[in-house]
Computed example of a mutant assay.
Amino acid sequence: MIAIHFEQEHDCKQLFSQLTQYMQKYAAYGLGGVVRAEGDDTIILNYEHKYINFYDSFHPLLSSVLTDYVISTKEDEWLLDIIENMFYFTDEQEQAQILTVARSILEGDRNDLPQMKPFFNRREFIYHAFSKHLEEETTFYYEPFLTFRLRDYGEMLIDCVEIAIDEYMLEQEYQNMIEDFRQFVQSKRSKLDMVYVVHDGSFTFYDDHFRRMTREELLFHLQDDLVFEQEVDVEDMVISPLVSMVPNRVHVFSDDPDHGVILSIQAIFQERMKLFPLKAYEQEWS
């Protein structure tokens, strides 16, 4: 028998319901046992010693259920507390956006950045913490465990929020830049009627006669106050010289329509831009 004690009645009720469902689900696989509530703050788990070894069956099941319960009921609450009280973001909309980024980091959806990887195993981390401290024939105190045994997990969440805030701020800067560039091309007179952009691993500009534009031409059109690609050679810039040219139309040839630069061009030029597959360029101009 193992008893799990809670200070919060709602935690006791919710986990009791989940454990009951799991016990019923796995009863068909030979996990004999009964879950019962003792008052409003304690769950008693009785398992059948005769047939089942606690550490081979109920122990990993209970550790897994408790892990899922912490993530589903506590993680967002703790993340929001860190966002507001450690990093002082009090606007609810900003909090929600930072929380969304933090969740994506924890779920492994932002693995394009190497510094994100340590957060992907947080479920395993919590599981091992429960597994280490759950013993048979004893009472397990839930809230003290969260306070004293998951401190490293709390530090992990702080680091996660810090990265999420950096990503959020970068996204805000990007959105502001896109809006500024959109307003610029809408308000300025077009310098060129057509600019072709060919994306075949790198980006190349062509004028309306489909003549490749030289470095000197790009520098001639480039406006210093529109440059945001810092420490990048003009030949490797895309957005800044394209916006500086204020073309009336932009035709982009690419087989990667979801490329970040292409999406940015689309967001800035909107209906002025048309996207074609790369083979259309090769067939027409090669």
Rank of each mutant, 00 (worst) to 15 (best):
T20H: 06
Y26S: 04
A27D: 09
A28L: 11
Y29N: 12
G32C: 12
G33E: 02
R36N: 09
D40F: 06
T42K: 06
L45A: 00
L45V: 01
N46R: 04
K50F: 10
K50Y: 07
I52T: 04
D56N: 01
D56L: 00
D56H: 00
S57L: 04
H59N: 03
H59Y: 02
L62R: 00
S64G: 08
V65D: 00
L66E: 00
L66M: 11
D68M: 10
E77A: 15
W78F: 14
L79M: 14
L80V: 10
I82D: 10
I83G: 05
E84T: 13
E84K: 15
Y88L: 09
Y88P: 04
T90W: 08
D91P: 05
E92Q: 11
E94S: 07
A96N: 06
Q97V: 02
Q97G: 02
L99E: 03
V101S: 03
R103F: 06
R103D: 04
I105P: 01
R110H: 07
D112Q: 06
P114I: 04
M116I: 14
K117W: 08
P118R: 08
F120E: 15
F120G: 11
R122A: 06
R123F: 13
E124D: 11
I126E: 09
Y127N: 08
Y127S: 08
A129C: 10
F130A: 10
F130V: 10
K132C: 11
E135M: 14
E135Y: 09
E136Q: 10
T138C: 12
T139K: 09
Y142G: 06
E143N: 12
P144Q: 13
F145L: 07
F145V: 05
F145R: 08
L146R: 13
F148M: 12
R151G: 15
D152L: 15
D152Q: 11
M156C: 14
L157W: 08
L157A: 09
